[in-house]
Design a protein around this nucleic acid. Structure first.
Lengths: 118, 118
DNA sequence: TGCGTGCTCGACAGGTCGTAGTACTACGCT
DNA sequence: AGCGTAGTACTACGACCTGTCGAGCACGCA
């Protein structure tokens, strides 16, 4: 899948947090703390689109960008990808389970139980 | 944590598969399919050591390299790191659980159950 | 008809990674 | 005593990624 850079992730975070598709200008405004040139934002949005993390649709002259997938889907995919790296998936999964905090273990358990029911 | 490159991963794979610590020469021999210069292998081993993925100890004039952590630990850490990226860990975990294959779900369930018992 | 908005292209610097040459050192065999 | 060999450290370089922009082009409104 390929990881994201610092700025790329910031921008994805903004878009993931938003329900509507945003223009480059709007993203730039929301990321104001970094005082970036507008073209910088555009370039990164472009790259993210080319990498498949965003979809864009026309809105007049401007593009509106929206995430191609939810952040959860992305995170889950990263996790599965990491898992694919090992030969012994069972050992890695066991380790992982041990590393998850108590409440999260509970969440996982529940999710797995629901799976079972289907 | 930071990901590994192609060759770096190959070398880690070799060392992870080995129970004993290896010298650069030995690693080079095991990775023979790629016909690398000995210095290439040394350089990469060096970088991996500097990044904390390997430990090395003297053996005469040579160094012996061994993984600092097991592959499973590494994979589990990658997974936890991915998980840290999200705001809604519960959603990501649920997604993840759904993405895991049946037998693996079983393994996870068992690992979580054991956790519970402790 | 000119400014603002937005786009596309191209660029450059800094970092990482694959790949390797060079130069220096210590050791054993002849 | 001297040479070949194994091994090290240091340096390098090109490719690619990422952050960061500037230049230049297009379009619509005042």
């Amino acid at each position: 899948m390929k990881g994201l850079g610092e700025l790329e992730r910031s921008i994805m975070d903004i878009l993931w947090a938003q329900s509507a598709a945003l223009t480059a200008r709007e993203v730039g405004r929301l990321i104001a703390d970094r005082d970036l040139a507008p073209t910088t934002v555009m370039t990164v949005l472009d790259r993210l689109t080319r990498k498949g993390f965003l979809h864009r649709t026309r809105d007049g002259r401007a593009w509106r960008y929206a995430p191609a997938a939810s952040r959860d889907a992305y995170v889950a995919e990263l996790m599965l990808e990491a898992l694919d790296m090992t030969g012994d998936r069972s050992a890695a999964l066991t380790r992982f389970a041990q590393g998850v905090s108590g409440p999260e273990a509970e969440i996982l358990r529940r999710a797995l139980t629901e799976l079972e029911d289907e």
